[in-house]
Design a binder for these strands. Sequence first.
RNA 1: GGCGCCAUCGCCAAGUGGUAAGGCAGAGGUCUGCAAAACCUCCAUCUCCGGUUCAAAUCCGGAUGGCGCCUCCA
Length: 476
Amino acid sequence: MQIYNSLNRRKEEFIPKDPGKIGIYACGVTVYDLCHIGHARSLVVFDVIYRYLKYRGYDVTFVRNFTDIDDKIINRSNERGVSWKALAEQYIDEFYVDMDRLGLLRPTYEPRATDHITEIIDLVEKLEEKGLAYAVDGDVYYRLQNFKGYGKLSGKNIDDLLSGARVEVDDRKESPLDFALWKKSKAGEPSWDSPWGEGRPGWHIECSAMSQKFLGDTFDIHGGGKDLIFPHHENEIAQSEGASGKPLAHFWVHNGFVNIDQEKMSKSLGNFLTIRELLEDCHPEVLRFFVVSSHYRSPIDFSTENVAVAAASLERLYQSLDRLLRTAAGTAAETSSMDEKINFWRQEFIAAMDDDFNSAAACAVLFEVSKEVNRWLDADVSQNDKPEAASCIARFLREIGAPLGLLQEEPQAFLQRGGGSDGELTATEIEALIVDRSTARTERNWAEADRIRDLLDEKGIILKDSADGTQWQRKH
RNA sequence: GGCGCCAUCGCCAAGUGGUAAGGCAGAGGUCUGCAAAACCUCCAUCUCCGGUUCAAAUCCGGAUGGCGCCUCCA
């Protein structure tokens, strides 16, 4: 398996530290607001990686943290007059709502920063002992000059950073680039007792402390969005490797951004769309398909048109799955005459995903299967085990859809599920109209039949007449 | 100013040396009462200019055009 390693800026053969086992740490969210679609992409990307590595038979330990204390949380809790704790709890709950709707697997561990104050303090003390940290008036800073190799992940060097100098000057720091490991708390702020007085952790230290606790000094993959490379991940390396003297992660994996209409989406630009808003009229699997149909490192441009394309594409796959399940008609066979074909497709899928999680190429395999299946079903060949073969292919489609989080719904449920907006016809109403239309059709009253079909079409319902009756689905 | 990424059909998007995957849209056809879905056929030489090579979208140099990080950020 090849994975692109941000550390060396090239694809490298991936070999787990311990055979058969993989440890992954992905930086999670700061819980002070609802998640936006940029978070969704990152979450989906690492969910796919997690699922796929498990699919390949690895014993995966996946850790994703919650940052539940920081400036933004404190500020917002003050604005709203609620405690930082209540605010964090609220948004952790909201996070789970979105996560479940997106069908994200729960990581093995989801540690919170404030549950690891002891570990954080221990780590800061260790850095202090090693001369890599110094305390000033209750604050503790990282002493960058004493760490060799700062900048190896982001490709920056200390001199350039100093001359770039958009760093605020703080006389108490030995160097402008030294960053906070522990922050002295101001009056009224949340704080924990420490050797340096009442305070709270700095921005980066939690990830070093928690990854060490759950995955050890060195683990296989560390991930996050590209924007975390500097300074967050760079500082994590300084902290963790400074303390342990060992490499933090063998592979660094970073996902690309989500742009909205060609522009970077960010909090500061205010052009972000929350997962919740999007899911009001977009099926969660459509969002997943949208994410997975591009390579995880490329930027993706979010727009209504692009999501519509994703919906149309996914629908095609579900149409095939639907046909397969109808043909199988409840048959559940273990093997069939299609086994060889299925195995060939499986190898194609694995080859795509083994190449740096090339989910876009993997999607092409899904479409290839879909195409061949439709052709096969259309041909109406007399084949002894057609239902058995259909059930095997259907199961296989779901097997390779699973790592991507696709095709896990019942086709009818997916196809008949609308955008979710109000004013739509219920299934019962639709089916009543279909009965009326069928009556008209048997009477060869085409005008009436078409009137009903047009009526349904206006409501976003599409009909499909076939030998065994009329199927319906909603436009997505 | 420093560091880095990208540029493939109308749109989305794979492809890192051997002669352009896939999806959406479009054109024609089959099927259908008509449709829808599906199937068949058609639909790009890879921003530009040089170079390396028997061979380049793929490597090197340059140009142009996008973008990111250097500040909170997935």
